[in-house]
Amino acid sequence: MVAKRSIALAALAAGGVAALRRARGRAALRPGPAEWFAVTVACDPAELTGVNRPDALAELAEHHEVRISPAPGGRGTELAVHSADGTVREQVRALKQLLETGEVLRMEGQPEGHRTVLGRATLPVARQLMRRGVR
């Protein structure tokens, strides 16, 4: 009886490992996320290059490869950052806001009613996830 159970468990385990390998194999076939995170900013490329570039952009460029190119048809400037993780994506979005509108929208400190305990705990995490986006 014990032997039969062991065989059954081993078979299950083997099946599970095989399924996992197949899943990993399939996952490996899927293309990975793009390595650059890009936005288009409604400004002249000259504003993002040279000594007059914004401090926030200079700081990004210290740690990441940054590509700046004119958008086709004179439709602004394409700004792309390499190896952009969540923090960088948030910084790039903020930079676009800053360049286009002169400030970065603040949301903390708005009126809100009674949050549940779970809501209070998860809102900052959910907001950060939505701010950065999943890739």
């Binding site: 676009k96 509108t101 939505m130």
Partner: peptide
């Protein structure tokens, strides 16, 4: 009012007014 879509009068496509776009 400043992004390309707002300037093109497509205001509900604004690039900047949704701070949590994910």
């Amino acid at each position: 009012g400043r992004c390309r879509n707002c300037r093109a009068e497509m205001w509900s496509l604004c690039d900047n007014s949704n701070p949590d776009p994910g």
